[in-house]
Simulated scan of single mutants.
Amino acid sequence: MKKIDLACIIDDDPIFVFSAKKIMELADFCNGFLVFGNGEEALNHLRALISSDKELPDVILLDLNMPVMDGWEFLENFIQIKSEKAITIYIVSSSVDPSDINKAKSYDHVNNYIVKPVTIDSLKKVLKNHKA
């Protein structure tokens, strides 16, 4: 399996971010990370990358419950941005609420819904499904 160049984690929980990065390293998942603590910070940074033609992430792991701008608000705004590169989004949440899972499936830009914690197996599935 070919690993991902750049992965983006959007999550306000520093413990989750730390553990996700460690698991990504163990799974040989990606060459680099972008990490943002809320949707607004991520949206602003990703917009700047798109407008300056800089490297964009291949995959976004998006939490739903965050301060400032939650995952749903990020998603609604992000899908409005025109980009040459297709970025695969995975919702990564502790929520097992069927309404959250069904809502995530209603977005064409969302590839899958991963229930926390992220595991090596869940990352290997992401890699297997990723079109390099």
Rank of each mutant, 00 (worst) to 15 (best):
D5A: 09
D13W: 00
F36H: 13
I9Q: 01
D5T: 04
V17H: 01
D12F: 01
L6I: 10
A20I: 01
I23L: 11
K3G: 00
V35K: 01
E41Q: 13
D13L: 01
I15Y: 14
V35I: 13
I4L: 14
A42P: 07
L43S: 06
V17C: 04
P14M: 01
E25Y: 08
P14A: 03
M24Q: 05
A27N: 01
D12A: 05
D13S: 05
G37I: 02
E25M: 09
G37H: 12
N38L: 07
F18Q: 13
V35D: 11
F33C: 05
N38F: 05
G37K: 07
C30D: 11
L34A: 07
D11S: 07
H45N: 08
G39R: 00
I23N: 07
K3S: 10
I9E: 03
F33P: 03
E25C: 03
N38M: 00
N31E: 15
L34G: 07
L43H: 08
A27G: 09
A20W: 00
F16R: 00
L26C: 12
N31Q: 15
I23R: 02
C30V: 06
E41A: 06
K21S: 09
I9L: 11
V35L: 04
G39L: 02
C30A: 13
D5H: 10
V35P: 02
